[in-house]
């Protein structure tokens, strides 16, 4: 269909992949499981929606293998909204990613929330035209994903808990490791790359820029407007909210309030107003009380 066009176009460049994440900044990306929820999310101010079959809290409750969603559900959501639609593939499951690319989702999340398909290899994300977002618990993990072609990073947190503690841990660790790199000389950076198990050229770039080369969002455990403002003040450039919205008492209102707090994260009076009278948050789990096999963040490496 491109034969009629005269303008030479470069599609699927890293600039356009990372550029979409740039346009999502300061925004809230919401998990949705139906077209109706997607519409509610869009009307409440979601910058994008993540289409999946079950939110993490339900995956956690139900157990079993969690997979890519039914394409019919993803198409229904694409038809319901005009904002970007993201969808999740299992870690290492490059065929699920191929299917999502064939559906023309706007971003693929290679996600630890689903059951990993490969215990050694992540997806070669350079092989795709659709951009990828990947989770990370520390800087080395973030840089390995970027080395594999990820165009956006989200700190993992612990999805489906409503407990912000892991999100804070991961975000603080990534940011403090970036700060540390900026103090090292060239020889020390080579050693740091080895310790981080990260590509040296990315380590050098971060030491110079004092920031990731892609947009950094925060995910996993955000349940309130104050949680969103907390991670924004800690350096996140936007937030993913999974179970926190549609597992709460008044999803529409909570969604609007989290959007407002994400925009005005530096203004306590606005965060206070956004936090007022929202009803019950999601049923939450204290992460430190979970067994090791119940944790999602250690999936991936």
């Amino acid at each position: 269909m491109d034969e009629n066009f005269q303008t030479a176009r470069d599609e699927a460049t890293f600039t356009v992949k990372a550029g979409l994440a740039e346009m999502l900044k300061g925004g809230v990306i919401m998990d949705v499981v139906t077209a109706e929820q997607a519409k509610i999310a869009e009307d409440a101010g979601a910058a994008a929606v993540m289409a999946l079959e079950r939110v993490p809290a339900d995956i956690r409750r139900d157990g079993g293998v969690a997979r890519m969603s039914d394409p019919a559900m993803i198409r229904g959501i694409q038809e319901a909204v005009t904002i970007p639609v993201m969808a999740k593939a299992r870690i290492g499951h490059f065929v699920e990613a191929q299917v999502l690319e064939a559906l023309e989702v706007d971003y693929i999340d290679e996600s630890e929330v689903l059951t990993p398909a490969d215990e050694a290899n992540h997806i070669d994300k350079w092989a795709f035209s659709v951009p990828f977002v990947c989770g990370a618990t520390n800087l080395g993990e973030a840089l390995r994903r970027i080395g594999e072609g990820a165009a956006m990073i989200r700190s993992k947190g612990e999805a489906g808990t409503g407990d912000i503690v892991e999100a804070v841990r991961h975000l603080r660790l990534i940011r403090s490791e970036i700060r540390r790199l900026s103090t090292l000389d060239d020889g020390e950076l080579a050693t740091a790359a080895k310790q981080l198990q990260a590509p040296l050229h990315l380590v050098r770039q971060i030491a110079a820029d004092r920031r990731l080369p892609v947009v950094l969002f925060c995910a996993g455990g955000i349940a309130t407007p104050a949680d969103a403002a907390l991670v924004m003040q800690l350096g996140a450039e936007g937030v993913f909210v999974g179970s926190g919205i549609f597992k709460s008492e008044d999803p529409e209102r909570r969604a609007r309030s989290i959007v407002e707090a994400t925009t005005h994260y530096q203004d306590p009076a606005r965060v206070a107003a956004a936090s007022t009278g929202l009803g019950r948050p999601m049923m939450s789990l204290e992460t430190s009380k979970l067994e090791a096999e119940q944790l999602l963040a250690p999936r991936g490496w």
Binding site: T7, A8, E11, A12, T13, L20, T82
Partner: peptide, 16 residues
Amino acid sequence: RRNAFGRQIRSFEADV
């Protein structure tokens, strides 16, 4: 016209 060139997979760079 919003998203006139298509979804993200049709995003592009060009000299204009």
